[in-house]
Design a binder for these strands. Sequence first.
DNA 1: TTGAAGTATGCAACAGAAGTGCATTATTTT
DNA 2: AAAATAATGCACTTCTGTTGCATACTTCAA
Lengths: 138, 138
Amino acid sequence: MQDFEKILENNNVKPTAMRLLVLQFLLNKKVATSLTDVENYFDKSDRTTLYRTLKTFVEKGISHKIDDGTGITKYALCEENCHCEIDNDLHLHFHCTNCNETICITDYKIPRITLPTGYIAENINLVVKGICDKCNKK
Amino acid sequence: MQDFEKILENNNVKPTAMRLLVLQFLLNKKVATSLTDVENYFDKSDRTTLYRTLKTFVEKGISHKIDDGTGITKYALCEENCHCEIDNDLHLHFHCTNCNETICITDYKIPRITLPTGYIAENINLVVKGICDKCNKK
DNA sequence: TTGAAGTATGCAACAGAAGTGCATTATTTT
DNA sequence: AAAATAATGCACTTCTGTTGCATACTTCAA
C-alpha cells in the first residue's frame, strides 16, 4: 500500500483513492490496458475520472501510451527492463489477435532504421500481430 | 480509363462509376488515405458507399489497410515495389506529425524478428513518426 | 478554525470514426 | 421482361476520446 503511494508521490501525483486503485490495477495487469478495460473493472467509477487518471499517469511518467494498431489507445506501466518510456526508445509490442491483449516484449531490440534523406524520425513503433504464448498453448 | 477497369476486373470487383473514381483518387494520391480524406474529396457521395468501397478494395487485394498509430485507418494502393499486401510481408510506414500524411517507405526492409517461444507472428507493422521530406525543407 | 484557493471528481454532452440494417436503385442473368 | 443479385444512400447505433461545468474534497494561510 505504502509503495503505491510512493510511486505516485515520487512523480508528483497526489495519491487519491482512485489513483491508487488504478495504479494497483495496472501493476497487476501485466499487459497493456485500454480505458475501457479499466472502466469495466471499476464499474462504479466514472469514465472521465479514469480517463484523466490515465492521462495524468502518462503526463507524469508513471505510465506510457501505446498505439498497438487496433485503433484503441493502450496504457501500460512498464517493468524495470522495459524501455518504452523515452523519446527515441525502442517500442516493441505484440498484439494477440486471439485474446486481444497487447504485450510489451522487452527482449527484442529494434535495429537502427535508415530513412530516406530528409526524413527525421522522432518515434518508432513496432507492433507484431499474431498469436501469443498463452493462446498458442490452448 | 480502361486501365482502371482492368485493375478492378482482375480482382473480381465490378467497375462501377464510384469505384473507378475512388481507385483513381487513390492512385493519384501517393500517400495513405483515410475514409474522411476520400469523403471530403467526393463530397457528393455517401460515406457508407465510400466506406464499403474501401473495404471491398481491401478484401479483394486492390488496396491495403494501414494502422499508422493515429487511430485513423488509412488505405493505400501500393506501387509495384511495395510489399505491403501479403501476410508476413514488410510494412514500413512513415507518419509525419507535421503534415499528418502517412507514407509507404518501400526501400527499408524489416529484419526478421525473433519472438519469445510460443508466439506466432502473422503480421508486422512498423511505423516511424517524425518529420517528412517535404515538411523538413520548409 | 474558517475561508479561500487549488485540485479532483462526476455528470452531461459532443465529435469523429466505424459499422449495421434496410429500402431503393442498378445491373446481370435467364 | 422478370427474377436474382449486387451496389448505393439514408438513418441510425456504438465506441472511443474529449471538453465544460458544477460539486466535492484538500490544503494552507490568515
